[in-house]
Design a binder for these strands. Structure first.
Lengths: 197, 197
DNA sequence: TAGCGAAAGTGACCACGGTCAACTTTCGGA
DNA sequence: TCCGAAAGTTGACCGTGGTCACTTTCGCTA
């Protein structure tokens, strides 16, 4: 019924992860060769794939752990007091999500775009993002953030704008302005409280 | 100075495009093999790459021409009279942009995410989308659409939500509801006119 | 029309992710 | 302590995208 994982397998997996992490930190996504990792770990190619499914399987773990750390730090800090501060608060997370186009690509592909129960640390991170954002938003309603919409909907919208702003990073025309500067006008318009009637 | 393109090259290119289009229409992105196309066209592999750069070069042309056709049809039709009609009006375009995950992936990667001058029919389509949307929005301001924001910013925001809604299509949890149903609440909240003070 | 330079096309070759049938190791129970 | 089944591992093999030094074709001018 249960399937006990042998320590041998855990060790192999840990070794692959560690070596993969080293390569990822040094060269990013593009400089990660399965054959290289496998050679350094002293195992056969097939072993890699039996552990991670495919190359992206490892990458999602590596990217996911960085995203998790970033989000944890953000959640532990003081929540922003106004929509304008959202972008700055989220900047460290976005830096992990989109250090380069290939990474961002993987993040998007495994995002489950806010809300699948499907596996994966990236998808889980997106769910956690919504929770954090929802908390921030609910806390600021109704004075600093519009109260005529569901906080969860607003939170998802923030994610959509984050993706938009990150994508613009890889476009020559917009890469000059910082990512939070690009995000801010959208969030301001999206979250602005309705004028008092 | 000028570089006259030989008719021979044009014919080869046209043949590759035509065969590629046939495969794309039958099997989508995933069922497109460069070697197959090249064999049917009776040319060498290198010829393909000298014409399109890489496999995605051809795919962006094929996807781009479908997106262009869809957007042209939308632009020619009557503009929507309320935010709620945006989603329905845009549905045919979104169907071309995201018939499957792989296609959507390519679209995103070549979008220039609204606003690079960089080449490519997909990036150009994104620019054209903004123009169409800006027109729609400006037309409805200030009664049916909020007037406190720049129409271009609102248009870009619509694109961000479109991407979000399309991404949700490939997520088990959300694929049940139609894409326009998913998009509508966001657009309603994003574009809703401010209450009269 | 010979011949030259550039454009177009060729195909052997490579890189690299991924597969799978066979083999080895582990471990619980008889 | 031996056995069988399942977990773990192996590495030869494959598919496919992409490269590049070389050949062929074309248009032009002397």
């Amino acid at each position: 019924m249960d399937k006990p994982i042998q320590t041998r397998a855990l060790q192999t997996r840990a070794r692959l992860l560690e070596i993969g992490r080293a390569h990822f930190m040094r060269d990013g996504v593009s400089g990660l060769r399965v054959e290289q990792i496998v050679a350094e770990a002293g195992v056969a190619k097939g072993t890699f794939f039996s552990h991670f499914g495919d190359k992206e399987g490892l990458l999602t773990l590596l990217i996911g752990e960085r995203m998790t750390a970033a989000l944890d730090r953000i959640a532990a800090a003081a929540p922003p007091d106004a929509p304008d501060e959202f972008a700055t608060a989220l900047a460290p997370l976005m830096a992990e999500m989109a250090p380069d186009a290939q990474t961002f690509d993987i993040v998007l592909r495994h995002s489950g775009a806010t809300g699948t129960d499907e596996e994966g640390p990236i998808a889980r991170n997106f769910l956690a993002q919504v929770e954090v954002l929802t908390g921030w938003i609910a806390r600021l309603q109704p004075d600093a953030v519009r109260a005529d919409a569901d906080p969860a909907l607003l939170a998802e919208g923030v994610q959509a704008f984050m993706a938009h702003a990150m994508a613009l990073t890889f476009c020559a025309l917009h890469s000059a302005t910082g990512i939070d500067a690009r995000l801010r006008p959208f969030l301001r318009t999206w979250l602005a409280p309705l004028p008092v009637r």
